[in-house]
Design a protein around this nucleic acid. Sequence first.
DNA 1: TGACATATGCTCGAAAAGAGCACATGTCAG
DNA 2: CTGACATGTGCTCTTTTCGAGCATATGTCA
Lengths: 351, 351
Amino acid sequence: MNMELSGRGKPTTDKAQRLQARNNPEHSAVGIGLNAAIVAVLDNEPVVLVVRNDADSAGATDVLPFGPFNPREHRTLEGGLRAWVRDQTGLDLGYAEQLYTFADRGRHAEPGDIIPHVVSIGYLALTEANAKSDLTNGAWRSWYQYFPWEDWRRGRPDIIAADIEPRLKMWAERPSPATTPQRPIARADRARMCFGLDGTAWDEEKVLERYELLYEAGLIEEALRDGRSAAQAWTERPKLGHAMPSDHRRILATAIGRTRAKIKYRPVVFELMPPEFTLYELQKTVEAILGPHLHKQNFRRLVEGAGLVEPTGDMKNRTGGRPAKLFKFRREVLLERPAPGVRVSAPPNRA
Amino acid sequence: MNMELSGRGKPTTDKAQRLQARNNPEHSAVGIGLNAAIVAVLDNEPVVLVVRNDADSAGATDVLPFGPFNPREHRTLEGGLRAWVRDQTGLDLGYAEQLYTFADRGRHAEPGDIIPHVVSIGYLALTEANAKSDLTNGAWRSWYQYFPWEDWRRGRPDIIAADIEPRLKMWAERPSPATTPQRPIARADRARMCFGLDGTAWDEEKVLERYELLYEAGLIEEALRDGRSAAQAWTERPKLGHAMPSDHRRILATAIGRTRAKIKYRPVVFELMPPEFTLYELQKTVEAILGPHLHKQNFRRLVEGAGLVEPTGDMKNRTGGRPAKLFKFRREVLLERPAPGVRVSAPPNRA
DNA sequence: TGACATATGCTCGAAAAGAGCACATGTCAG
DNA sequence: CTGACATGTGCTCTTTTCGAGCATATGTCA
């Protein structure tokens, strides 16, 4: 497994391990992997950091940065994460939060692998991607490259009506396999709720639900790769976004959904912004993440009224229009409001 | 590289494991533990399931149910959880969700343990606690027993003004140690925001933040046990809630916070209710979890208006007052609204 | 110099939320 | 039997928040 990352601890001795395996049937030693979805906004495009994975048997592919967690070396999961992210990419993480721990499928040992890498803990990190960031490795990729159906900045993305909706409808008409008998919600209803079909409102936070629905319906490469039975019959049509190895795309989906949710009640947008910015830039960043266009005047009222920002006194001149006041994040808001964030509710129906 | 993708290999042998351990210094095998905070509401009291832990060297104590995760046996984390919860307690879990993965402190190996149990994945489960539930083991305990400062049902709990506030103020006046130099928010401000001191509003969702603040200030037993330096000078006064071994109380704090947050945008209350209930019972359950008293008429308007419930047609007669209509959860709401829940906003200032 | 892009202030109406009044219909103690 | 009491239920009223539009200011740039 993952070799490029390194960890430097010494392994447990074989003897102890054998004993353990033999004497204590309750324990099963496994490796812990940490995956990071490192998100930034670059020229109004939300991007995620990927690294080249040359060791992949199927040729080099882009993966989320990942590495092992070695409890002998690092006291905390986050500490371990920061360490190898810095080693691997040269990046010093600022804000980071745990997303989810995945162990469910596709995480099998390779031949020769003794300690299967069954569990991986996903992290979300938000960072400012300025030009002079010293990336030693890896590249920024638009997250919409992996999730084209999530990009509503220019209206409802065509891929939904063209590729997703018809195939989901077909899938919905086929009978559910007996293995999921108690599934309480019909396939058609799930598709409708997830993708806002038939006039249902689009909920931008349901990123993971949408991904998992497409997976279950066998419409994305990962499903085929993992041997989902439903996937077999669907292999020949346009792929839906770039696939990623393992469950990296699932982790990314979780990261996008969490970012979209959190931006509304925590001032995390500012992790993505330079220290000074105009309100327009701030709005564009929020829109890059959430999708829809916001009413400019209301956005100003909201952000200023909530005390999220304060003017620096300076102006930005080369805006292409009237010069804009520069603002900075008003940290004190954390001491005033319990849940400060960019409270943008979705318009009544964007479907 | 990333091996986790890939194929489904058969489990490896001891020999292979030795090789692996020797040749691949990148991995450190650890045990995975699963912890469950199983929550119910019993007679308007939110309760959590605890089991007796006789193995504790300091005598028997109550702990959250926990067990190992064995990837050879269970394909999914949740599957493993459900299996040993049933074995251990006789309970069949309904709703369950992952909370957080803890690996940070207090998770030391016991003597004789070869593979330290470093990582534990916390789960939240919600269930209905009816009288005839077949608990073979364990007991329901009010969660406010572990977090008395969270119980606002009879107004602001005295323990805050009597024990917590003065000690936090003293803590705030002592200088922060150099080990946390970049701490951006002053101790006094953190205490004020967490516990709603000096007129600041109480945010019922900040359960974990409050617990961690008390831990950091050395005011709870776990801090002393874990050897926090700050704890040494504080050992002789009334304890703040019942302590739990390891980080079980932290997991419970996470569970309470998550439950309080989620109840507002997902119809999870109904996991705690019998199939039929009156609106008053529903309100009491919500209040047991969230704390404050809600305006009865508005609660009705809210719940009915959101389409969360529908009348069964029957009445409940022995209510002590006018007979009440019986309602049941209206599942179809999941197909109509993106985020249905009991939308109770806090009154402007409850401090 | 004028088209254009951006910034900024103000108003209006709809919807949601908080809070109170009034009354209906049961139980239960005396 | 009767009245205190507890609960259920309908309605109104005010305040706040939010979506949306109008109008105007002040820059850049062809």
